[in-house]
């Protein structure tokens, strides 16, 4: 059990902002139609990033930080060793498989528990007030601090990893769903009250559909966090020979195999980005035809 210092943006605030920015960009793009320039900018930044990396490898890391160039391999080396070295490549593919498994199972459970909690909390203000502090506490607890407890309860394998995943990913689902369920207009509620609608009817025909856009925002943020949670969980809980990307990163690190280590980090990043965008796409498919983003 090594403790690679992993900074976890537990609040999901980073991803939250990312979700908002993406929505804005898409709304803006829709208004004026797609242009070639939409692709040129990102591509340019990507090229600059690679060039900067290569420069740091060749000269910068020595000149500015006083480290050996091998600490930061060239992008070419990283790609070469990650993709074309069979042993490393197999390790990354296996790692991706295990990490996906934990992230997806964790996300599934997170969604079920998180939404159920939000639905319960949406019923009465006092329920919300009573439960909220515990959510915040869960959110504020560093994984590192409770590793022994998790170990005792869930063992040292997949169960513990899934728990970490849930713990890190659940907050945005609950808060976004709760916000969505409680944000219908007062006069829309009046409409239902006038027709003597039951709590269940109100939930089904007003609050739940009204919450869909927010719920999808929650899904998207939590999906990104569940990947973070899976990688972090793997670094603490490795029983059962199930080497995910987090394990791979750590093994490559201790063996000073730098290129595949960066390769593993990049694969973990890509996985996070892919799930984030897939859920964004899903959201547009499900609510895009009626939802009007407030920000413009």
């Amino acid at each position: 059990m090594t403790s690679a210092p992993v900074v976890v943006d537990g609040t999901g605030a980073g991803l939250d902002a990312a979700a908002q920015i993406e929505d804005q960009l898409i709304a803006a793009t829709k208004q004026r139609g797609r242009r070639l320039g939409d692709y040129v900018g990102p591509l340019l930044v990507f090229v600059l990033f690679i060039v900067l990396w290569e420069y740091m490898h060749r000269d910068g890391i020595q000149r500015w930080l006083g480290r050996k160039p091998s600490v930061l391999p060239s992008p070419v080396t990283i790609i070469d060793q990650s993709l074309f070295n069979k042993i490393f490549r197999d390790q990354l593919i296996t790692g991706l498989g295990w990490t996906c498994l934990v992230a997806f199972v964790g996300l599934g459970i997170t969604i079920v528990i998180g939404m159920a909690l939000a639905i319960v909390m949406a019923q009465k203000a006092w329920v919300e007030r009573s439960l909220y502090p515990y959510l915040v506490a869960l959110q504020a607890t560093p994984v590192l601090a409770i590793v022994p407890i998790i170990y005792t309860v869930f063992g040292g394998g997949l169960g513990a990893r899934i728990y970490v995943c849930i713990m890190i990913a659940i907050f945005p689902i609950v808060t976004n769903t709760l916000f969505g369920l409680t944000s219908a207009d007062a006069s829309q509620h009046d409409l239902f009250t006038l027709r003597h609608a039951s709590t269940w009817t109100r939930m089904r025909k007003l609050q739940f559909p009204n919450a869909m856009p927010a719920i999808f925002t929650g899904f998207r943020i939590s999906a990104g966090l569940s990947v973070v949670g899976a990688v972090v969980g793997e670094q603490f809980f490795r029983e059962g020979a199930k080497p995910g990307l987090g394990v791979a990163i750590d093994q490559f690190r201790t063996r000073l195999q730098r290129p595949p280590m960066y390769g593993a980090i990049i694969v973990a990043c890509l996985l996070g980005i892919v799930v984030f965008f897939v859920f964004g796409l899903l959201s547009r498919l499900v609510v895009g035809h009626w939802y009007e983003s407030q920000r413009s």
């Binding site: 207009d185 009046d190 009204n210």
Partner: peptide, 11 residues
């Protein structure tokens, strides 16, 4: 009862 806002359900 017709409200001040249309209060249509957007979905």
């Amino acid at each position: 009862y017709v409200f001040q806002d249309a209060t249509l359900l957007q979905w």
